[in-house]
Amino acid sequence: MSGALARAAGGGKMADESPFRRNIRLFLSSRLSTVSAAVVLGFVVLAVAAPLFAPQDPNETDLLRRLQPPVWMAGGEWGYLLGCDALGRDILSRIIYGARISIFIGIFVVLMATCIGIVAGLAAGYLRGWTDVVISRLVDILLGFPYLIFAIALIAMMGPGLQNLLLALVYKEWVVPCRLVRGETLAAREVEYVEAARALGASRRHIMLREILPNILSPVIVVSTIRVAHVIILEASLSFLGLGVQPPTASWGSMVADGRSYMLESWWVSTFPGLAILLLVLAINVASQGLRDAFDPKFHD
């Protein structure tokens, strides 16, 4: 039906445009959204091809360059654009490699959580009954913990490290898509096309995955993109507390923490990694807002 509406409203050339393509076009028509998406993409490219972009080895220590200032200050060097940390490691290179950690964790956690959340939410919303009771209770209980505290407690128990960090975040994160999918499924199961599929004797699996899921996917995608920003800040916070990725692996949060001891003289050690977090998270937030505006029919007028 929305396709017909779009055709009626758009007319002309856009008559054959699919809703998805129209949404993408709407998204790209906002300059701010486009710029933000480009920034996010830039970070992803930087992370994937880190060895190509990093001017130095991120873990190579050089005590002669201990706390060397950025290039524009006295004592700076072109090869070490943003200066060096207390072990003489190049901050820019560590930021570039740190992007790998932040982006990998952000995407991995949200992807895993969304898969789990979709399955659990579909099951709870469509099957109802005991399945719903068990899943919803579990969701309620997990919602009873403040996010950071839950993650901190789990990592305290399992010990720090990349794998435990991922697990701790996924254990809590799936609740977000699950609630969303359950709510949407509850609404969708009463709609005519689902009833029609049921009347035609389609299996429950077919109805859930083929009829309901494609129709509730766009809010899930929009929420997921915002959650990536959230998870990146959480990871950085945990790494800042020393509970995230362990040294010497570069992570933006732990780089900020390292610089805390030198903030009297060497402000750059903390400042630049934090700036990277802000830039990436801001770009994701702006882009996902644009995505929501483009994909949510409420905003189309």
Partner: peptide, 22 residues
């Protein structure tokens, strides 16, 4: 408000410390 939700608190805190205390 976009900045407010995107600022990592620990970093913002350190920036304030560097400015107002140090």
């Amino acid at each position: 408000s976009l900045f407010g939700v995107s600022l990592p608190g620990f970093w913002f805190g350190i920036l304030l410390l560097m400015l107002f205390s140090v």
